[in-house]
Design a protein around this nucleic acid. Structure first.
Lengths: 150, 150
DNA sequence: GCTCGGAATGGGAACAGTTCTCGTTGGGCG
DNA sequence: CGCCCAACGAGAACTGTTCCCATTCCGAGC
């Protein structure tokens, strides 16, 4: 169900390039974060990341995620609990949506057909055309309870 | 653009009834919150509410919003900034979507045609049918920059 | 290979939003 | 009229996140 796995080398190259534009280095800590997020297949919380790589420290993870978000390598995802979650940016991961469990806060990815995406875009474009709002994208999340929470 | 205004009396009746089921009173503070949320037409932050009704106190607003959420009268909305926003529950407000400004965090409501809603529901139903996830609804938000933020 | 300068790091303090605590208030019922 | 307990108000406590600063690391130039 989770889309075809992505090319890690390509992701690293893109991350390095985007950081370089901002005069930032692609350090080992940042590389680890990107690698983790690329392999998880689901938005991760900071505790998730710290647990997966105990060598990482909290303040650096926060700082590096903020930097990676700023240069467009990762993006923040909000769920129903109060921890931020992070995933690779859409242009690295592919456009997708989230299943948000209101019971445990877990977030999973899913995709819909590109035809369905186009019709959603059209509907949204019509709906907001007279609001002065400039859309940069959409978030279509399904809320409910995950299989584990039954 | 904001849908037809809702029947305030009906909202109060529903709120009172849902609280009563949970052995809770519909106190003046709670009534004020419901009234504010019904009149705002856009999800409100706690500071918004405190400013609109200086008589309300912060701790009571938090406590009462939590209670009203628990009995299904209001719901929490997350935006891009880190303040929670609240609006009346969907069955009191009508189903709608949000325009989320990534620059200032402001959130506005908009609606799409019921035909479009049905097709979205169908698409989502197909996409998650084999995940074990039980959907209770969806959130379709448009992110971008509002007219004020240009 | 060595040194220097600036970027990144790590640990902890500071901060903001939210939740909890507890003594007080007040509405409803006997 | 008085009792009881839910709700209130003020502030303390808590939690996730951000900031600070001394130390470490990396890369460029010698």
């Amino acid at each position: 169900m989770t889309g075809a796995s992505i090319d890690l080398g390509q992701v690293h190259d893109a991350a390095a390039a985007r950081l370089r534009v901002a005069d930032q280095r692609y350090t080992s800590g940042r590389r680890e974060l990107v690698e983790l997020l690329a392999s998880t297949g689901r938005p991760a919380t900071i505790p998730d990341l710290l647990e997966a790589r105990p060598k990482l420290t909290q303040s650096s993870v926060y700082r590096n995620l903020a930097m990676l978000e700023e240069v467009g390598v990762v993006q923040k995802v909000v769920s129903s609990d109060d921890r931020a979650r992070f995933e690779l940016a859409e242009d690295l991961m592919g456009h997708h949506h989230h299943l948000i469990c209101v019971s445990c806060g877990r977030v999973d990815d899913f995709v819909v057909s590109s035809r369905a995406e186009r019709s959603i875009e059209t509907v949204l474009g019509n709906a907001i055309s007279d609001t002065g709002f400039r859309a940069s994208g959409h978030r279509l999340d399904v809320v409910g309870t995950c299989a584990d929470c039954n």
